[in-house]
Design a binder for these strands. Structure first.
Length: 205
DNA sequence: CACGGGATCGTCT
DNA sequence: GACGATCCCGTGT
């Protein structure tokens, strides 16, 4: 098993840099002894205070978004459309509510478990594609919002992996944030150009 | 492949 | 009481 990303990794100010750098890293969960893992192939940065697409826009604090204001290195998981659980990585120092939404994985381990959770065949091409889909496949649920990604006993974490070449990474506008005005066009969605496991528009911009 | 609609509920107005 | 950082299935081309 590879080394876990250290706490300092998450506490950088540079949320777009982290979103880009998380590509290729391995997201792992072990809930009730069931190990599942996938390679991050698509992620979006949400820059808290200045980003109208962010739940923490203008430093808005609510019970739900409070974990976004924690120091980086914890999960922010929320329920979307009453159905889908969205997995985010909180980044930055305490008080700075930046986060990275994990949008797609390439499944690596525990595919049988993922298939059961998704009620799909193990070799389904969309087993872990899309934020709601991957959260379900990995067993992620709002009950785990606020959980550390770095504590030794944590059931979810991210493992180190070699960096990708800049040419293999694409950037473009984020998905589903049309309500966010000017922020909707900011190119803060990052994905691996050649991955078959990317969720939406594949064109590089 | 593109589009449209239904599912479903916590959160904030 | 309205509305999502979505998904899946159906229809039509």
């Amino acid at each position: 098993m590879a080394r876990r990303l250290p706490l300092a990794y998450y506490q950088s100010d540079d949320v777009t840099g982290i979103a880009r750098d998380l590509l290729g890293k391995i997201l792992v969960t072990r809930f009730e002894g069931q190990l599942t893992a996938g390679r991050i192939v698509e992620a979006e940065a949400y820059m808290g205070p200045v980003d109208r697409a962010s739940h923490a826009w203008n430093n808005r604090r609510t019970a739900r978004t409070e974990v976004m204001f924690s120091a980086g290195g914890v999960a922010y998981i929320y329920l979307c459309y009453g159905i889908h659980h969205m997995m985010n990585v909180v980044t930055g120092p305490a008080g700075q509510p930046h986060a990275v939404l994990i949008r797609a994985l390439e499944p690596l381990e525990g595919l049988d478990i993922m298939g059961q959770r998704r009620n799909l065949a193990v070799d389904h091409p969309r087993l872990t594609v899309g934020p709601g889909a991957l959260a379900r496949a990995m067993g992620l649920h709002v009950q785990w919002s606020g959980t550390s990604l770095t504590r030794r006993q944590s059931p979810l974490w991210i493992e180190e992996a070699s960096s990708l070449s800049p040419e293999s990474i694409c950037a473009g506008p984020r998905i589903g944030v049309d309500y966010a005005g000017e922020a909707a066009s900011w190119p803060w969605r990052f994905f691996i150009r050649d991955s078959a496991w990317v969720s939406a528009r594949r064109k590089c911009t």
